[in-house]
């Protein structure tokens, strides 16, 4: 109401923008290089998996899954993920509740320690469990006496998988819940809700998309982990072979079609994960990552 000067739109908007961007040719050139680079380095390997898997036709592709070893590898991978992901889900929610809803000393140290598995090489992740549970390990002799096998058996695979996926859910939830603060929970508690009731009806709906997002990524890593699992598994066919390990065995036997066929299952899982992840990001980005303002 105060200004008498009408703000006119710039006569040539493209011209007005041109001081803060590069010339058209440079823009297209850089975009071209970036896309070409991604296509060559990232997309081509993915496409190769499917090309190789179907190199000898559908029947050869499906024959790879008729094998008993392949089926048991699928079962084991599903089993391991079915234990590791819920474990890390409970841990992640619990850690995020303690860290985000309360102020206490040493919090930064705790967050750093939770992050630790991200910076440990997968092979070292497997090694440390061998050092604890292996026959020469810390409690190895005791385990042998009591006839409990952890290394070269399913428990070791589960433990190593839990380790490499340990920070996934906690890392996603901590900043998200920190940003949401405690006001809503405090209101619920003041109105007479129990702690558990407040968590279920107030906190959980607030974090559900972030939770789903992190469970998805955690699951992809749990099913695809190779290095850590390879160290503790012992590669016993039909018993301690997960899908990624089965891929390796078939490949080293020069059974390429079967190897890529099994690999295509995992690649398919990765693709589905990426698609759902992107959809969640596009739709609920504010509810997934902290930083964007809520409400």
């Amino acid at each position: 109401m105060s200004s008498a000067v009408a703000i006119r739109p710039p006569a040539r908007p493209d011209r007005a923008e041109s001081v803060v961007t590069e010339g058209r040719a440079v823009r297209w050139g850089l975009t071209g290089i970036a896309i070409l680079f991604l296509a060559l380095f990232l997309v081509l390997p993915l496409v190769t998996v499917f090309i190789q898997a179907f190199a000898k036709g559908w029947s050869a592709y499906f024959a790879a899954f008729q094998e008993a070893d392949a089926r048991s590898a699928i079962r084991l991978t599903l089993l391991v993920a079915a234990i590791a992901v819920p474990f890390n889900l409970v841990f992640g929610v619990s850690a995020a509740w303690a860290i985000a809803k309360f102020e206490f000393r040493g919090k930064n140290l705790l967050v750093t320690l939770i992050d630790l598995p991200f910076s440990v090489s997968p092979v070292v992740s497997g090694l440390i469990y061998v050092l604890v549970f292996g026959s020469q390990g810390l409690i190895g002799p005791w385990l042998i006496e009591n006839d409990i096998q952890v290394i070269f058996a399913v428990p070791g695979i589960v433990l190593a998988t839990i380790f490499v996926t340990f920070p996934f859910i906690a890392r996603q939830l901590i900043p998200l819940m920190q940003e949401q603060g405690t006001a809503e929970e405090e209101a619920a508690l003041t109105l007479g809700a129990s702690g558990w009731h407040a968590f279920r009806t107030v906190t959980l709906p607030n974090i559900r998309w972030g939770l789903l997002y992190s469970v998805l990524l955690c699951n992809a890593r749990a099913m695809g982990e190779f290095g850590a699992v390879s160290v503790v598994s012992g590669h016993i066919r039909g018993l301690t072979n997960t899908l990624p390990l089965h891929v390796e065995i078939l490949y080293n036997e020069y059974n390429f079609v079967a190897s890529f066929a099994v690999a295509s299952l995992l690649a398919g899982l990765a693709l589905v994960t990426l698609v759902i992840k992107s959809l969640l990001e596009w739709r609920y980005s504010a509810d997934i990552a902290a930083g964007a303002r809520r409400h």
């Binding site: 991604l38 390990l245 992107s278």
Partner: peptide, 29 residues
């Protein structure tokens, strides 16, 4: 540019693709 969101999603492929799968694909390529 067209397909920008897809290109953006593709960047995360190495996070999602199991390393053994990436390994044999790169080796055969």
């Amino acid at each position: 540019f067209p397909g920008q969101k897809i290109v953006d999603a593709v960047v995360d492929l190495p996070f999602a693709l199991p390393t053994a799968v990436a390994g044999i694909a790169l080796a055969s390529l």
